[in-house]
Design a binder for these strands. Structure first.
Length: 642
RNA sequence: GCCGGCGUAACUCAGUUGGUAGAGUAGCUGAUUUGUAAUCAGCCAGUCGUAGGUUCGAGUCCUAUCGCCGGCUCCA
């Protein structure tokens, strides 16, 4: 046995070290900067502390804040610091769990009195002291008995429950401590508390122990932390930017939509400007669907309860459906989905393989009972319109249909200015129905379609619907947030339940494949995403008002009225601001209304048959002929430039 | 639904230890005729979310209820 070991770095480089070298020493040998940034290490994919001696050849990586795994270690350590601060300030508070999350960390506490916002500041101040002390994180393995003794003495009942679970899994037990704090923890941790250069506690929320509603409710404190002040500043600025783009705020400011207390939560009122935009979106959607081989259909909003029993909705989703109501002694149900209606239409007569695939699309408004606490602007509502369609096809047509749908969806999303997308393929979940052969064929055709369109995707194992596998497409908005829009789902359930058939070339009845798909998702959600993506400054083709004519003096009002008429005659959505106000005010209001084109007219322009054009957000102006201007705007509109 | 916070004029908000409401914006009226992000003046504006209660007296304290916000949970 040699006392040299060989470490393979992520870039493929092999380095030799003396057996027992620590990860920190390896980092130092690679470079001082890496040594300074190192938070933990990864050995054969397993995260470990920097002071861990390395005893064998391995795939080796230094984890810094630049990597997701490095962030996790950093945030998890921050959670420990916060937990100490809380227990120092509020003795008797029990700790539950404190993991890292997508951006930051939380820790769940059991404390009789609720935390107040002002407590967060106190906790932050105590954390600052703990960080300033810069004490080391020290981890060690221990026996089950020792851990039980330690946590029962401390009265940490949640930790004892976790120990029971660890015992059942027969996993090793380790403790991590820093300063006066010790926690049951798998590790690893950053070397010392002083590495946390900047942090902020964000909010307090209720959360159930182990996420189960029957369990005691704990108080969860959320925070973020960074190894650099600048990163915290950037994070806080990103939050502010998101707040500035909040569709609820912009929706009110731009008079696009409202939610009315008197009408009930989660029910959207589309004001004229929002409704105009919705019409533009819907018209575009219809045109594109007709171009892409779809037929448009309409279906009712209610149906007899029996239909929903047959479809399985009452069995699976009764909790999120509005309760049924009676009409002349028959129970009826407000629709939570469009599919059973399309299926009834399909069943209204016999179908031949020659007709397939049938693609039936509908902007179908559905109603679902969402618990009051989850409602959120346009993003989570109780009544919404899906851009739904159902495709009935033969087995051999599946792959092509999926490819078509995928490309169509990407085309639609790009048309609205979304360039960055992420695609997820969700496979069969444990609880599901249908033949194994159908599932694997469907999953294979989804994969094949993705491969054919040369798109990258991630597999979300076991995340499919119970009735079939699916592809979801998320768009990335202007500030990098992901929103799920498209879903393309196989359904092995409904075709069976409704005994759908078609007559094949062989004269026999066959079962069609059924695919549900929504491309934009729901018009409400999609509209909310658009508002936030564009921060309310919509491209010309979507803007409710595309241009506004701004006379400088009343003397040119007549010329401006004619100009206004001319713009409207050319199909441009134009406004005219002929109030006796100063041009400064008119510009200001047009800017805050985020109107793409401001057309300023004074005596000079009126004389020359021109206008001075100022674009939203751009101070620079340009004097152009009216006809040129109209041609430009019309072109921009028709090409749907974003 | 659960935890925490918040509900004052159409909107954004102020209102000190309980003494029966105030600002800016918007709206209306008038004056002003203006060259690229707020012209001036006047007027109108609220059973302080709702319902009870404590008190001589409640926007302020208590209870219930509705709604909103941040999370949790859920999302076919």
């Amino acid at each position: 046995m040699t006392d040299q070991i060989s470490l393979r770095l992520p870039d493929g480089k092999q380095l030799q070290f003396k057996r027992g070298v620590t990860a920190a020493e390896v980092a130092a040998s690679i470079g001082p900067r890496l040594a300074r940034d190192a938070l933990a290490a990864s050995v054969d994919g397993r995260p470990v502390d920097l002071n861990k001696p390395l005893e064998a050849d391995a795939e080796f990586e230094i984890l810094t804040f630049a990597s997701d795994r490095g962030k996790e270690v950093f945030w998890h350590s921050s959670a420990h610091v916060m937990a100490q601060a809380v227990q120092d300030l509020f003795p008797g508070t029990k700790i539950a769990i404190g993991p890292p999350i997508a951006e930051g960390f939380y820790y769940d506490f059991d404390k009789a009195e609720p935390f107040a916002e002002s407590d967060l500041e106190k906790i932050e101040n105590r954390m600052k002291q703990i960080i300033a002390a810069d004490t080391e994180f020290v981890g060690r393995e221990c026996s089950l008995q020792e851990a039980r003794k330690l946590f029962s003495e401390k009265g940490e009942s949640y930790k004892l429950e976790i120990l029971d679970r660890i015992e059942a899994e027969n996993a090793p037990i380790s403790l991590y401590g820093h300063d006066s704090f010790i926690d049951l923890c798998r590790g690893p941790h950053i070397p010392s508390t002083g590495r946390i250069k900047a942090f902020k506690l964000l909010s307090v929320a209720g959360a159930y122990w182990q996420d189960a509603e029957g369990n005691p409710q704990l108080q969860r404190i959320y925070g973020v932390s960074y190894p650099d002040r600048k990163l915290l500043k950037a994070f806080l600025e990103r939050r502010e930017e998101a707040a500035r783009r909040d569709h609820r705020k912009l929706g009110k400011q731009l008079d696009l939509f409202s939610l009315q207390e008197e009408a009930g939560g989660g029910l959207v009122f589309w004001h004229p400007k929002g409704a105009l935009m919705r019409n533009i979106i819907e018209n575009f959607w219809r045109e594109e669907h007709l171009k892409n081989g779809y037929d448009l259909v309409y279906s009712p909003h209610i149906a007899r309860l029996g239909l929903w029993e047959r479809s399985g909705h009452t069995g699976f989703y009764a909790d999120s459906m509005f309760p049924p109501f009676e009409i002349e002694g028959n129970p009826y149900q407000l629709k939570p989905m469009n599919c059973p209606f399309h299926i009834l239409m399909y069943k209204s007569r016999l179908h031949s393989y020659r007709e397939l695939p049938l693609r039936w699309a509908e902007l179908g408004t559905v109603y679902r009972y969402e618990r009051s606490g989850v409602l959120h602007g346009l993003m989570r509502v109780r009544g919404f319109t899906q851009d739904d369609a159902h495709i009935f096809c033969a087995r051999e047509e599946i792959k092509d249909e999926i490819s078509r749908t995928l490309n169509f969806s990407i085309h639609m999303l790009r048309s609205f200015g979304f360039e960055q997308m992420k695609i997820y393929l969700s496979t069969r979940p444990e609880k599901s129905i249908g033949e194994e052969a159908d599932w694997s064929e469907a999953e294979a055709s989804l994969k094949q379609a993705l491969a054919d369109s040369d798109t990258e995707y991630e597999i979300d194992e076991g995340a499919g619907a119970f009735y079939g596998p699916k592809i979801d497409i998320c768009v990335q908005d202007a500030i990098g947030r992901e929103w799920q829009c498209t879903t393309i789902q196989f359904d092995f359930n409904l075709a069976e339940r409704f005994d759908l058939t078609f007559v094949g070339a062989d004269g026999n009845r066959h079962r069609p494949f059924l695919v549900h798909r929504a491309l934009l998702g729901s018009l409400e959600l999609f509209f909310g995403i658009l508002i936030e993506h564009y921060a309310g400054a919509f491209p010309v083709w979507l803007a409710p008002v595309q241009a506004t004519v701004l006379p400088i003096v009343d003397a040119v009002n007549e010329y401006c009225r004619e100009l206004h008429e001319k713009l409207r005659a050319a199909g441009i959505r134009a406004a005219l601001d002929d109030r006796s106000e100063k041009i400064n005010l008119k510009i200001r209001e047009a800017e805050t209304d985020k109107i793409p084109y401001m057309l300023v007219v004074g005596a000079r322009e009126a004389e020359a048959g021109q206008v001075t054009v100022r674009r939203h957000g751009v101070k620079q102006q340009e004097v152009v002929d009216v006809d040129t201007l109209i041609a430009d705007i019309v072109k921009e509109d028709h090409t749907r430039s974003c």
